[in-house]
């Protein structure tokens, strides 16, 4: 049923949006991509699974993912970006690839390369609304993901932190000369970017059941697809891009062929990059 697929697609897409937001935030302040961003999704997932295995409730898993992935993101900034701030823009990006592989291998040593999962959380309550079947878990995911999206949108638009972040994105030197410490803005931006990816990891894994330490590779790329489709550098664009990719994936699986999923998604990605690189919603003021 189509409307059921829409709900499923938006649920999945909301987690992709959380990943895409992180890329966009970092791209905004540094004009560089964090290519270990997908690994933050993975790190958050395993932090969440670790807590759950120790008997903690899901809320604690989500909190742990938020905090731990956020801190790993700060570690990425301090080791891959900050020391290389005057090097070629390629150096930190290549360094993040190395860092990402490092994280994959550390996770493999700890959790093994077999799929891990959350301990059985019991049969989820299902809600029947207007002919749609929505699990309570799905509702929790939608509420969490959209809650975070709205929160980040409000933070960026209405708090001084958000204004400082936008000012630093526009012109870091002028921002610094008005007392804004660029390092502090960058660190907090990385923390938020990692935290959102980490939460996305737990939410996704709760629904799609299992993960390996290599999950970050695809999720990281999907987040990038969402960012490009939404419009490079545009925060709300990243959110819409995430939802669009989630819908595309779900509709493809339902009406076409799940085996062609990534072929379809990455064909669309390719087409956007070649034909409409500015995405659906180009950043205002030509910012990129």
């Amino acid at each position: 049923m189509f409307s059921q697929q829409l709900v499923n697609g938006i649920t999945l897409g909301s987690t992709y949006a959380l990943i895409a937001i992180g890329y966009t935030l970092v791209l905004g302040v540094l004009k560089k991509l964090n290519l270990a961003h997908g690994e933050l999704f993975m790190v958050g997932t395993f932090a969440g699974i670790g807590m759950a295995a120790a008997g903690a409730p899901i809320v604690v898993s989500v909190g742990a993912a938020f905090l731990f992935a956020g801190l790993v993101a700060v570690a990425i900034e301090r080791t891959c970006f900050y020391p290389l701030r005057n090097a070629s823009f390629l150096s930190p990006m290549l360094t993040t690839i190395a860092f990402g592989i490092l994280l994959q291998n550390v996770a493999t040593q700890i959790f093994g390369s077999d799929p891990s999962r959350f301990p059985d959380t019991g049969r989820s309550v299902e809600l029947h609304i207007a002919g749609l079947t929505i699990s309570a878990l799905q509702v929790a995911i939608l509420v969490t993901a959209f809650g975070l999206m709205i929160a980040i949108d409000v933070l960026i638009r209405h708090t001084r932190w958000g204004i400082a972040l936008r000012a630093t994105s526009d012109d870091p030197e002028t921002a610094a000369q008005h007392g804004i410490n660029p390092s502090r803005v960058t660190i907090t931006t990385f923390f938020v970017s990692g935290a959102l990816a980490g939460v996305a990891g737990v939410l996704t894994t709760l629904v799609y059941s299992q993960v390996t330490p290599l999950i970050g590779i695809r999720q990281g790329l999907i987040g990038m697809v969402a960012m490009v489709i939404g419009g490079l550098g545009n925060l709300r664009g990243a959110m819409i891009g995430g939802l669009a990719v989630g819908l595309l994936e779900t509709l493809n699986d339902a009406y076409f062929n799940a085996g062609y999923r990534d072929l379809v998604i990455f064909s669309v990605f390719f087409a956007f990059l070649v034909l409409r690189p500015e995405g659906l919603f180009p950043a205002p003021g030509g910012r990129s």
Partner: peptide, 18 residues
Amino acid sequence: RLFQSLTVLEHLLVAQTC
């Protein structure tokens, strides 16, 4: 050197955090 995505008031709000 104004910030291209900021409103007039936002320029002052951000500078006040100094």
